[in-house]
């Protein structure tokens, strides 16, 4: 284990707070615990957030993301996340000069949803692995940040 000052910001957008009720897998807090365990093992600081408020999520992306070294975003959305401000915030992800990974619990292509448009060419994408989508993204980001070496 290497202790670092690296901080990873994980943002969960609107429509995820009730996933347990919709029996689509683990709760958003259970996912947070799994990510925290992995980050601790990797020596990465974790700031894990979820909000149903589009404006709040937009603020996190446009302001707070400046202070982290990497960002993992589950934009979620659903019917509620349609405001122009939210879209502008998601567009702002393209201008972050740091690793960005878009994650989804389920395979969005089976329900005809589309990945975020306009991310920078280096952004990663993971969907369909449940909590594993997040853990894979964390492991990949750790490698990109040089926390763990490729074996």
């Amino acid at each position: 284990m290497v202790s670092t000052d690296l901080e990873l910001l994980i943002i969960n957008g609107p429509g995820l707070s009730d996933i347990e009720d919709r029996s689509e897998g683990p709760s958003i807090s259970a996912i947070g615990h799994a990510c925290a365990d992995l980050c601790e093992a990797l020596g990465i600081g974790l700031d894990y957030r979820q909000s149903e408020d589009e404006a709040e999520v937009a603020h996190w992306i446009t302001s707070d993301a400046a202070h982290c070294q990497a960002l993992i975003v589950n934009p979620s959305g659903g019917p509620s996340a349609t405001s122009a401000d939210y879209q502008v915030a998601l567009d702002a992800l393209a201008h972050l000069d740091k690793p960005v990974v878009e994650v989804h619990l389920t395979n969005i292509f089976r329900t005809n949803r589309k990945p975020l448009q306009g991310l920078s060419g280096s952004a990663g994408f993971v969907c369909g692995l449940g909590v594993g989508s997040y853990l894979l993204a964390v492991a990949a980001v750790a490698q990109q940040l040089g926390v763990v070496r490729a074996e």
Partner: peptide
């Protein structure tokens, strides 16, 4: 993509 369980890209 629609024929699989999971997708990983860009990493």
């Amino acid at each position: 993509s629609p024929a699989v369980d999971a997708v990983v890209a860009g990493l």
